[in-house]
Design a protein around this nucleic acid. Structure first.
Ligand SMILES: NC(=O)c1ccc[n+]([C@@H]2O[C@H](COP(=O)([O-])OP(=O)(O)OC[C@H]3O[C@@H](n4cnc5c(N)ncnc54)[C@H](O)[C@@H]3O)[C@@H](O)[C@H]2O)c1
Ligand SMILES: NC(=O)c1ccc[n+]([C@@H]2O[C@H](COP(=O)([O-])OP(=O)(O)OC[C@H]3O[C@@H](n4cnc5c(N)ncnc54)[C@H](O)[C@@H]3O)[C@@H](O)[C@H]2O)c1
Lengths: 227, 227
DNA sequence: GTGACATTGTGAAAACGTTCACAAGGTCCC
DNA sequence: GGGACCTTGTGAACGTTTTCACAATGTCAC
């Protein structure tokens, strides 16, 4: 048989009780973040025409322990081949499917200030499974932003556009005072994932997932280690 | 005696064995990050003329457990007063001292692109204990950036300026290919703290602390939770 | 084919971080 | 000044995450 055995063609184990994507027992949040890290590393390998990779190699590249890499992947199935490693392209595809970035997710950014403009001008997200094509501000200074000409809507149109365009994820880059109010509105319009750059904790219902990017905290905690 | 007892005026306990800042046993990184969170919450309270706060109140504001707040603070000494809580202004000052943000830390940003410009234009850092007044790029398109007119130097001047201006912390916003090379250079010039926005792990000697801000990973891991 | 080799997947152990629960100790009203 | 009340600081319990270590399993060269 040529090439490594594809661990998922046919069924290998009698009872295929791997919980796939549905039925997942609780996956630690840290595992999910590393999944995303693995995906990126695999993408780089693929670009360099590397076809297999071992947990040890992946771990080294990312500064992790190889057992951790194996354990993380084992949450989702048996992707590796003993004595061989992991097939790069295949694993990448599977991880993207698990993360849900093999489909396009519609993203809106709210608060087109300094930071908001920088994020809108960044092509990276659109390449990576996101469609970041809507921006909102309380004051529309430019009709569109960046080379991709993302239109800027008045914040009064928020709910309407979010519903119409099926926006699932929102990036918040508004002033601190506005954050909670905007969060309430987007959640009301059906959004259940928020990436919050505002240095203020927002209250949301349990089904809404909020990730914080807090630059001040990163800086200050670095300061601590300067002796 | 009017006002709450200041737990640090004179010595209260027979043996003042609190390890203060020096002699610190290992403090978990997560504790340091929360310290920074506490500082910000205390600043807000102070602005509103609140003079005392309990661990329960702080915890609620930040979405934490009150025992955790107390335990975090207890790493650094006895700041609270039983039956009263913590004196806001005083605790804020002490935490800033512990974090090292009660002095100004010189910060340089390298890679004046979309993201770099946004960060340079953000006044927040300069208000918070940092002096972010140096920028570097391989190609100097503007002499200065933002309202604060941060000068942009050619990257060839990196080592010279870092040494001369005693720059201690560097923010990296260059393309992925350039990150390791630049990291090597700034470390060689004496920098020991790096905030890396580049989605690529960099290798540094053990005394150098690197924090990563990885926006793609935040987005992708949010995607996972969209069912 | 066969056997030496490589690497996985995973229980068990270790390390780490969070929460509980309560004695100790200050507050502050009467 | 006294006593009811609050809130701290912290051991111990608990839960989570990481690392170790190795049997199981597939590879690959001959
Ligand atoms: N710029 C940075 O580098 C940086 C760094 C760390 C944190 N942040 C945080 O990110 C947020 C934005 O920062 P910034 O520097 O881009 O600020 P900014 O003032 O440049 O941008 C804020 C934008 O939000 C808009 N806005 C205000 N109220 C609004 C509302 N109710 N609805 C919609 N839009 C509204 C404003 O018109 C403005 O365009 C702030 O909370 C800031 O603390 C920024
Ligand atoms: N813009 C974003 O929103 C965003 C989001 C996530 C990650 N990032 C990451 O941040 C980094 C910067 O992103 P960007 O969008 O600002 O890119 P950009 O291309 O706009 O900016 C990069 C800047 O670095 C400069 N540069 C290139 N090589 C250099 C060198 N050797 N020394 C000094 N300067 C050099 C370039 O001249 C340019 O000005 C990238 O690694 C990107 O992946 C950016």
């Amino acid at each position: 048989m040529p090439g490594p055995k594809n661990p998922n063609s046919e069924d290998s184990t009698p009872e295929s009780e791997h919980q796939e994507l549905s039925g997942d027992r609780k996956i630690p949040a840290a595992v999910i973040k590393r999944l995303s890290l693995y995906t990126r590393a695999l993408q780089n390998l693929e670009r360099n025409k590397v076809e297999k990779v071992s947990s040890t190699e992946l771990a080294k590249e990312l500064g992790l322990n190889s057992a951790q890499v194996r354990k993380d992947l084992a949450y989702f199935g048996q992707f590796g081949v003993p004595g061989f490693g992991y097939p790069v392209g295949e694993l990448r595809k599977k991880l993207k499917h698990i993360l849900g970035t093999d489909r396009k997710i519609n993203v809106a950014l709210i608060g087109v200030g300094h930071l908001g403009k920088a994020l809108l001008s960044y092509g990276g997200f659109n390449r990576q499974g996101f469609r970041m094509r809507w921006a909102f501000d309380i004051e529309v200074r430019d009709k569109t932003i960046g080379a991709e000409k993302v239109p800027v809507y008045n914040i009064s149109e928020l709910e309407q556009v979010v519903r119409r365009e099926n926006i699932e994820l929102v990036i918040l880059t508004v002033p601190a005072e506005a954050a909670q109010g905007i969060a309430d509105r987007v959640v009301g319009a059906g959004v259940s994932a928020i990436l919050n750059f505002v240095p203020k904790r927002i209250q949301t219902p349990p089904h809404v997932k909020v990730h914080y990017v807090d630059l001040a905290i990163e800086m200050e905690s670095l300061s601590f280690y300067l002796r």
